[in-house]
Amino acid sequence: MAMIKILVGTVYGSAREVADALEPIFAAKGHQVEISEDPEVSDLSDSRYQAVLISCSTSGSGDFPPNFIPFYRQLDQQRPTLSHLRYGLIALGDSAYDQTFCEAGSKIERLFGQLGANRVGQRLDIDASEHFQASEAALPWAERWLNHFEAERSV
């Protein structure tokens, strides 16, 4: 059993809806989940968490939701080493905004990579133009992500 922290960046609630939909899937496999819409850099070094999952929408012109901006700025300024961190990433956006589609997810993924974090599985980009309910796209991905996560833990 693992403890997984889900950090949520949301404006209209879709990213939180995704996090809430994933919790029972993780719990059914014996994992505990903590969800936060007020992420802190300290969440990334908390030894209680074996993984961090980010569910973050893109707003404006490729920006982070207001609740996620302080976290991202603090992380970028402090630049802690994250080589111990295993993470997953769900980016929400709208492909109608072609140039900035899921840009917030791309930004956090770049920064995590620069800081040495280890992504588990592939990033999921959810297009609001294709999925009215973002959680519908996230559920099959979550099953695959958990399989990758559990396989890595057993090695």
Rank of each mutant, 00 (worst) to 15 (best):
K107I: 07
Y87E: 01
P70I: 01
P66H: 13
Q114R: 10
E130I: 05
N67R: 09
W141A: 06
D46G: 07
S61I: 12
R110M: 14
E136P: 02
H31M: 10
G30H: 07
H148C: 07
I90N: 02
Y72E: 05
A96H: 10
S36M: 04
R48G: 09
S45D: 12
Y87V: 01
R144P: 05
P70Q: 03
Q77V: 13
A96S: 13
A137Q: 00
P24W: 11
G113M: 11
H131C: 09
S57C: 10
T58E: 00
S55F: 04
P140N: 07
W145K: 03
Q74E: 15
D38Q: 12
A138C: 02
G105N: 01
F26A: 15
L82C: 04
E109K: 09
R73W: 12
S61W: 13
R16K: 15
I90F: 02
H131E: 02
P24I: 13
N118W: 12
G113H: 05
E17P: 01
V41Y: 07
L115V: 10
E109R: 04
S83D: 15
E40V: 00
L82V: 06
Q133C: 01
L89F: 11
H31K: 00
E103R: 01
R16S: 08
L85K: 08
S106F: 14
D98A: 13
I25D: 11
Y87C: 02
K107G: 04
